[in-house]
Amino acid sequence: MIEQLLFWVFAILACGGAVAVVATHNVVRMAFWLVVSLGSVAALFFLLHADFLGAAQLLIYVGGTVVLLVFGVMLTASGPYNAIPTSPAEGIVGGAVGFLLLFVLVSSIGSVDWTEVSGRLPAVPAAPYLVDMTLAAKADESFVNTGSPRAKAEFAATQQQGRTVRQLGLGFLGLRPDRHLAEGDGKGSASGYFLPFEIVSVHLLVVLIGAAYLARAKRRVVPEGSMNVG
């Protein structure tokens, strides 16, 4: 019951913050509402048993990205540029398009029977023997092996509730504790995220260097002797 309540609270906060971001004109206020919205999303993550992701959301978005945006505001939007007004017509058109899009999305979401869809998915988590041996030992294997897919998913979910740090870490090292290696065709479905992780890390490094290069202070007066440096 408390979970439901919390969901609704944070869902409304997140949606409301997002709408407020759209609605306000002042950049600083927009940043504030953004913080509210993103923080609520982090809370939703926790509700979804994604504890590490929620923490990352808070750290990176709320603590990092938004601060970065505010710095950007500080460096650029001084004085009159803090709030650049949008014409009402644009606002109306934007709103109309937004509502239409929302309608499309919501109607799509509503028209799908998610239970049935998830049941059709092939990936059934095997016994989480690597994750928590003690829990796995206690599990009723006959129930697990004979139950419906949904039961299996729920079982697995309850087994891993809010304890995703170790699993993600192993996943990024190339191991998948929540998958049986012999599953599926046994070739690729049980692979970890080692390679994407590396790619993303290098990507991040490159982007940061590039950002630093782009944002560096330009020297306006070039000394005579260094013209050829360019």
Binding site: A11, A14, C15, A18, V19, V21, V22, S37, V41, L44, G94, G95, V97, G98, F99, L101, L102, L105, V106, I109
Partner: peptide
């Protein structure tokens, strides 16, 4: 919730 956030972002 995701849809609302998405639409707000687009707008």
């Amino acid at each position: 919730v995701g849809a609302v956030l998405f639409v707000c972002g687009v707008v």
